[in-house]
């Protein structure tokens, strides 16, 4: 290859060095902190211990972790149920309009996360738009406290991550060979069975990619629970935040962070396996 990059490694080196120093090294550092003891006045005492990980499985924290996983699971499920029809509809739209529709579906995702969450405070608070609409519709009881609830947190997370799921599912749908669906119809498959037995299985890799992404970002989130869940509502991200900025127990916070990273790696691994499996199937399908 006579491309001027005769030394690809040299070109990659500055970025690789940056990532090694500012991402890999810090992550290894907190990994090591997770095995040290907390100092009496905060800080870290470099004595090896497994106590931090024992505390992670302490019923108190295990409960928060499981609760976060449950909420993240619900968010993932709802996001997929909304995103799939949306991606399907975009894929069915006239070709020249698809790029534009997709762009506007994803646009909110790249804009400010805090502001998108704040928008829901404006909608859901006791004097907010939804309560006003209810009042106009004739409801004259106490204003509903929609904000500062688990439901508000779930809505906020779905809202924030939905665009990415639409993008992930669309990208597998748009690569699908339409002849496969036609073949299914020709062989007597109705629209429902064609969808369930052909389209859906072939697009599971997109569903998995979007789902893993939403789950990972939701389970470690601390901004949305803090803003929409109210002060007492805790997810695992809020506990990590507290350990570092208020409780000053960095080793325990580090152990919790490692659990999040481990969850992420396991899910990405499973997703990779699922995708490899799906593409193997596709390669085997006659075209």
């Amino acid at each position: 290859m006579s491309f001027q990059a005769s030394r690809p490694n040299l070109l990659a080196a500055p970025a690789v060095a940056w990532l090694l120093v500012f991402m890999v090294l810090p992550c290894l550092l907190i990994l090591s902190y997770a095995f040290f003891e907390r100092g009496t006045w905060g800080g870290v005492v470099y004595d090896f211990t497994l106590e931090n990980f024992q505390r992670v499985v302490d019923p108190l924290y295990a409960k928060i972790f499981l609760n976060s996983a449950r909420i993240a699971g619900l968010v993932t499920l709802i996001a997929i149920l909304i995103a799939y029809p949306a991606a399907y509809a975009i894929n069915r739209a006239p070709k020249h309009r698809q790029a534009m529709l997709l762009f506007f579906a994803v646009l909110p995702f790249w804009s400010n996360y805090l502001i998108r969450t704040y928008a829901w405070i404006v909608l859901l608070n006791r004097e907010g738009l939804l309560n006003n609409l209810l009042r106009m519709a004739g409801y004259d009881g106490e204003p509903l406290s929609l904000l500062y609830s688990e439901g508000a947190v779930i809505v906020g997370l779905v809202y924030n991550y939905l665009p990415f799921v639409i993008l992930a599912i669309y990208s597998t749908l748009s690569r699908l060979n339409p002849e496969l669906m036609e073949a299914s119809r020709d062989l007597g498959g109705g629209p429902v069975s064609t969808f369930l037995r052909v389209t859906l299985p072939l697009t599971m890799s997109g569903v998995a990619a979007g789902g893993v992404f939403v789950f990972v970002l939701s389970i470690g989130n601390f901004v949305t629970p803090a803003l929409l869940g109210g002060g007492r509502f805790q997810m695992i991200g809020n506990v990590v935040y507290d350990q570092f900025l208020t409780a000053n127990d960095w080793p325990f916070g580090a152990a919790l962070g490692m659990v999040l990273i481990a969850t992420m790696i396991i899910l990405l691994f499973l997703q990779g396996r699922a995708t490899a499996h799906a593409s193997g199937e596709r390669a085997g399908a006659p075209s």
Binding site: L19, P26, I30, Y33, V216, L217, G220, N221, V240, G257
Partner: peptide
């Protein structure tokens, strides 16, 4: 790929520690 998927909170506390 990692910087795009690593949870923000983990990278944030790792950098603060570092």
């Amino acid at each position: 790929f990692a910087p795009m998927v690593i949870p923000d909170i983990v990278l944030a506390v790792a950098l603060l520690t570092f």
